[in-house]
């Protein structure tokens, strides 16, 4: 039996006594590209956050690369891409500075950045097509470009496992394609991907397996459902935050 990258056994999570995940078990092996699908509020993001230890488990256990999560220390093996850029920071930061913080997991806190770090940052920027924007403040980038910055930050650490939380939510199609391209390169090296998604879009051909979360339990684990099937998953509410577009349609016509 191959070593699993992620194992969740009977995982349960509750926020203030409100159960969000109940008795979830998943096992992901090297080279898999797994999409966690589900409606808003189904618990799909919580599952990923629990795997990473950002949300404590009420019951069950998570194992990362064969080590119980509590004792896991080899965090450079994981590249995490959050939903969006952290809320903080009125202080400007360049794209390159944000991407460079992806090297810290590998380098440690005290060692200054060396040539290998700079090369990895340059490669990661190239992989997402942001080399020209390296010196620009992140806040001047479009939403899609900011998302690509976060992906470059994760890639800069040269991880074996990429964990992405809704990487394409609200991202323009050019950025979605650039993102799919970067992911294709990552997967081609036989590495593992776990991504939370609402819609797969151009990523669909890359996905080897889908896990559908519904009301805190796993409703489906296997082949990627057809788009119609995905939209027909129980409780799927197809809500898109496209309010600006709608209003411009109202006033702009």
């Amino acid at each position: 039996m191959t070593e699993s990258v992620i194992t969740v056994e009977h995982g349960a999570v509750a926020y203030d006594d409100r159960p969000v995940l109940r008795d979830v078990s998943v096992r992901i092996t090297p080279g898999e590209v797994v999409a966690v699908l589900g409606a808003n509020g189904s618990g799909k993001s919580t599952l990923v956050r629990a795997i990473l230890g950002l949300v404590p488990l009420n019951a069950g256990r998570v194992t990362l690369f064969g080590t119980p999560q509590r004792r896991f220390r080899q965090w450079w093996r994981i590249g995490y891409v959050p939903q969006r850029l952290g809320a903080g920071s009125g202080v400007p930061a360049t794209v390159a500075e944000v991407v460079a913080s992806g090297r810290l997991a590998r380098r440690g806190v005290l060692r200054p950045a060396g040539g290998a770090d700079r090369r990895a940052v340059a490669e990661a920027l190239q992989a997402v097509g942001l080399t020209e924007r390296a010196g620009d403040p992140v806040v001047t980038l479009s939403g899609g470009q900011q998302q690509r910055t976060l992906i470059a930050r994760a890639l800069a650490g040269q991880p074996e496992l990429l964990v992405l939380d809704e990487p394409t939510a609200g991202v323009d199609s050019a950025s979605q394609d650039a993102f799919a391209e970067a992911l294709r390169g990552f997967v081609a090296g036989g590495r593992t991907v776990l991504l939370v998604a609402h819609e797969l879009g151009p990523l669909a051909p890359l996905i080897t397996r889908a896990v559908v979360v519904h009301e805190g339990t796993i409703a489906h684990d296997g082949a990627v459902p057809e788009p119609a099937g995905h939209h027909a998953t129980p409780g799927h509410e197809h809500v898109h935050p496209h309010a600006p577009d709608e209003s411009s349609g109202l006033w702009g016509s």
Partner: peptide
Amino acid sequence: HDEEYARVSGL
């Protein structure tokens, strides 16, 4: 800049 990311980086 991003405390959760720093956490997942093992800092």
